[in-house]
Amino acid sequence: MSESAEAESSAEPDDAPSVPRARRRGRTTLLIATAAVLGLVAGTCAGYLIQADRVPTKLPSLSQPVVAQAKGDGPEPLSAAQDHRVKTNGDLRKLLLPRPKGTKVPDWAPEQDGWLDMAAYAHSLEDSDVAFGRLAKAEFRRAAGVSWTVGSNGNTQIRLVQYRQEENLSAADRASDWYVYGSSGEWPLPGASDGMVYLFKPEREAGYLPLYKAQATASRGDIAMEIWIYDSKPIPKSKIMDLAKRQLERL
């Protein structure tokens, strides 16, 4: 054998093991991964076995302990003067100003025993058919009123109209929705953001005494307040203003 042949034959063992070494590394990695998985499974099984041998831990009760009530009577309920609903959910007629002494109940008074149903209240307004429909849409609940006459020509009417107000603030809408025409003066009513007092020019017709009119409107909660004074002589601003203030204070 020549020297070149011997050199080639002696070089083969050095290069040949390169492939088997790569294969051995692949097998080693696979063996390590397999051992890790088997170890994880074995550890999980061992954990289950250990947990199965332990005494179960008692869980806390889902019910809460009963808390003893504090001693004492607790807070007192609000009085009618403090709780608006106590007053307005009661007898609405009791919130009306009393009829002054020396006055008379007119025969034409629309209220019966102080109450007005929706038909009676709508009938007391102009264009009663339209008013009835508007009251139904505005969620009319009930109304109370008082009327009196002084002398032969003076009369006063007070209405407290209560609304359910489930969808609309009808009381405030009613107080601010009056279409006032022919007024000779208007002033805000203290104590109500929407309160107004009006005096009107006299209505004159041949053969009749002049008709003077004063009006006051306001709302408090779910109640709209409406006051009218009629007379054959001028009505002082102080008269309607004082009457409106006193009625508003009762709401």
Results as ranks from 00 to 15, higher is better:
residue 93 R to N: 06
residue 109 A to Q: 10
residue 136 A to E: 10
residue 127 D to G: 05
residue 29 T to V: 15
residue 250 R to F: 03
residue 79 S to E: 07
residue 147 S to N: 10
residue 166 E to Y: 12
residue 48 Y to N: 14
residue 87 K to F: 04
residue 61 S to D: 15
residue 140 F to R: 00
residue 81 A to W: 07
residue 16 A to V: 13
residue 194 D to M: 03
residue 9 S to T: 01
residue 211 L to P: 02
residue 134 R to H: 02
residue 164 R to G: 09
residue 215 Q to G: 01
residue 167 E to Y: 07
residue 176 S to M: 11
residue 56 P to N: 10
residue 128 S to T: 06
residue 62 L to Y: 10
residue 138 A to P: 05
residue 217 T to I: 12
residue 198 Y to I: 01
residue 127 D to Y: 08
residue 22 A to Y: 11
residue 241 M to P: 05
residue 249 E to L: 13
residue 7 A to E: 13
residue 184 S to I: 02
residue 102 G to S: 04
residue 240 I to R: 08
residue 222 D to F: 06
residue 65 P to K: 02
residue 249 E to W: 09
residue 172 A to C: 03
residue 74 G to Q: 05
residue 226 E to F: 15
residue 88 T to Q: 10
residue 113 D to I: 00
residue 157 Q to Y: 09
residue 81 A to E: 15
residue 20 P to W: 06
residue 248 L to W: 01
residue 136 A to G: 04
residue 149 T to C: 00
residue 129 D to F: 11
residue 233 K to L: 04
residue 211 L to Q: 08
residue 35 A to V: 10
residue 137 K to W: 00
residue 36 A to P: 10
residue 181 Y to G: 03
residue 63 S to W: 06
residue 138 A to T: 07
residue 164 R to A: 13
residue 44 T to E: 14
residue 132 F to C: 01
residue 29 T to A: 15
residue 18 S to A: 14
residue 41 V to H: 02
residue 152 S to W: 05
residue 151 G to N: 02
residue 5 A to M: 13
residue 213 K to I: 01
residue 87 K to R: 15
residue 233 K to Q: 14
residue 14 D to P: 04
residue 139 E to T: 04
residue 169 L to C: 01
residue 16 A to S: 07
residue 72 G to M: 06
residue 161 V to F: 02
residue 236 P to A: 08
residue 91 D to I: 07
residue 145 G to C: 02
residue 15 D to S: 09
residue 176 S to F: 09
residue 123 H to F: 05
residue 113 D to K: 10
residue 139 E to L: 01
residue 151 G to S: 05
residue 183 S to I: 03
